[in-house]
Each structure stands twice: as C-alpha cells, then as structure tokens.
C-alpha cells in the first residue's frame, strides 16, 4: 500500500451467519483515504456503512457470527493479521470512532469525568488527574459545552442527546487520532453546534494530517465537509468521485434518486419518491479526479 494512504480497503466482503442461514451484507468493496483527506460514505440505511466502520476499527472481528474477507490496511498494517490485543491497542489512540448511537458508546455507570480519564490513559498511561481534568474541560469547550464542570460530573442519562454526542466527539478527538471514523456525528446537534464540531474536525485534519471517514445521511453537511464521496447501496459502492462532481453531476441511478429526495429549506413539500429501480444495481460509476 502506498505511503500516502491512511486507509485502504480491498474487496471487503461481510456476511452474518444465523440459525436461519447466511446473509451477505458487503459484496466486495474497495475504498481508500489519503493522509489528511476527508472522505464521506453515504447511502441507504442498512447498506453497510456502520459495519464497514466497525471492521476498520476491528471490533466486528470479535463477533462470532460475522464472516469477514478481503483486506483492510490501516497505517501499513492489515487488520485481520493482528491479534485482538494489537487491534485493541490501536483503538482510541491511532484510530478512533464516533458512534452513531451515543448510548452504546458511553458507559451508563461512570461519570463523564471518569470516562474521559480512561480514554486519556490509553494515550498516556501516566497522565495526572489534574492534566486529565484540564484537557477534558478544554475539549468540551471546543465542542461548545460551556458548563464543563457540570457535564464532567454527570452520568450520561443526565445529559441531553446532543450533549452526549458532543462528549463522544470530544473523546474521539482528544488523543488526536490518525484515522477518525465519524458515524453520523451530527444527528443530535443543532446546526450551529454542528458547524462548530465540523470546524473542529477540519482543524484536526489540518494540524495533524488526520484522515476522516465521514458517514452521514445529511447530504448538506457532506457537501460542505467532504473532499471525496463514496455512495453505497445494498453493500456495493455504486458511485465515487470528488464531492463537487457527485453533487453537480450524479450519474448512477441510485445517486440521482438519493439527491432528488433531499428536502429543501425553501419548501415545496416532501419529495415524491419512485419505487426502487433495477437500475440501482447498475455497475459502479467512477468520476475522474481532476485535481489529482
């Protein structure tokens, strides 16, 4: 894998085995992210975005029912060749993830302060309590939480949906990871706070050359944030290219249908939706990257 690639996925396939049979979820996807690049993965609900992120993070390997094949290279290492403990060591430091549902990522029985401390110790096992406190408060302020003292002493159930999401974003960024997997990072945030978290991620990219895999259903946000886009439909990449090119000139039937379904701030009603078409299974379309 070439040196400027932060992530390279080759022919990744995934199926789940259950007593009633096997269901194929990913049908061989290829995906690359360069160092310092912001790449969005967008598409159908249930198409395989979160499982892709969890394979990159190495957590799906631990699920007995998951059958994974293909290659996932992160910073020169192939994930399936690593042991469970080697994969674990990368998590929260080199690779970190913002999960779609904060309730699954935050531990209900520890305060936010304790959870930050634990994440910081992964990056620096000898970190002092006062430094940990300071750094946690700093990152919370960066995600627009002003009441840091109260939030640090709270349990997740005492915070609003968007506050928990920001806590999780803070935890994912605090060790300045090389690869950030952001799965729906803004769903519970109001637009002004969302804009602030996007700025924060952009800064991380600029200052540390972090690479971001950004998963979102909010195509307005994707248009503002991503350099490049992969569109996924039922476990297959159907279209890929620079963000501007995909938005200005969508060529795959699924991408066209998706863009036509975006509700508009100017009104006009809920968009008319046609039935899923056979053309959604057409071969992948690749846009030339003119800047490369």
């Amino acid at each position: 894998m070439s040196a400027d690639l932060a992530l390279s996925i080759r022919n990744l396939a995934l199926s789940f085995k259950s007593w009633s049979g096997t269901s194929q979820v990913l049908h061989g996807i290829d995906l690359e992210i360069k160092r310092g690049e912001r790449v969005a993965l967008v598409g159908e609900s249930g198409s395989g975005k979160s499982v892709t992120a969890r394979i990159i993070l190495g957590t799906l390997h631990e699920l007995k029912s998951a059958r994974i094949s293909g290659e996932v290279w992160v910073a020169g290492r192939e994930m399936s060749s690593l042991s469970q403990s080697e994969r674990q060591a990368l998590r929260g430091t080199d690779i970190s993830m913002i999960f779609q549902d904060p309730t699954t990522a935050l531990n209900p029985v520890y305060t936010i302060r304790q959870q930050f401390h634990e994440v910081l110790m992964r990056g620096d096992p000898k970190i002092s309590l006062s430094t940990a406190e300071q750094r946690s408060a700093d990152i919370l302020r960066e995600v627009s939480i002003t009441d840091t003292e109260r939030v640090l002493e709270s349990y997740p159930f005492q915070l609003s949906g968007g506050m928990n999401q920001r806590v999780m974003i803070g935890m994912a960024l605090i060790n300045e990871p090389q690869l950030l997997l952001a799965d729906e990072p803004g769903t519970a945030l109001d637009v002004t706070v969302q804009a602030q978290t996007l700025r924060l991620m952009r800064d991380l990219v600029r200052q540390h050359g972090t690479s971001v895999l950004f998963i979102s259903h909010n195509l307005g946000v994707v248009r503002e944030f991503a350099d490049r886009i992969y569109v996924i439909y039922k476990g297959r990449i159907v279209e890929t290219g620079p963000a501007a090119s995909i938005f200005d000139d969508p060529r795959h039937a699924y991408t066209k249908a998706l863009l036509a379904a975006i509700p508009r701030l100017t009104g006009g009603g809920i968009p008319e939706i046609q039935e899923d078409s056979e053309a959604f299974f057409d071969p992948m379309v690749t846009h030339e990257d003119v800047s490369a």
Binding site: V42, G43, E44, S45, S47, Q100, G161, E184, T187, A188, H217, N218, L219, A257, L258, A261, I262, P263, I270, P271, I273
Partner: peptide, 20 residues
C-alpha cells in the same frame, strides 16, 4: 423525538409521507 435523522433521505421521504 428526532424520528428520521437516522434515515437516508429516500427512506426519510417515505417515512415522512407515511406519517403525513
């Protein structure tokens, strides 16, 4: 409470029409 933010816009449009 945030019923459709976890959905792609195609499914979202379908659910919003259904709700309507």
């Amino acid at each position: 409470d945030e019923p459709t933010s976890a959905l792609d816009v195609l499914v979202q449009a379908r659910i919003l029409r259904l709700l309507d």
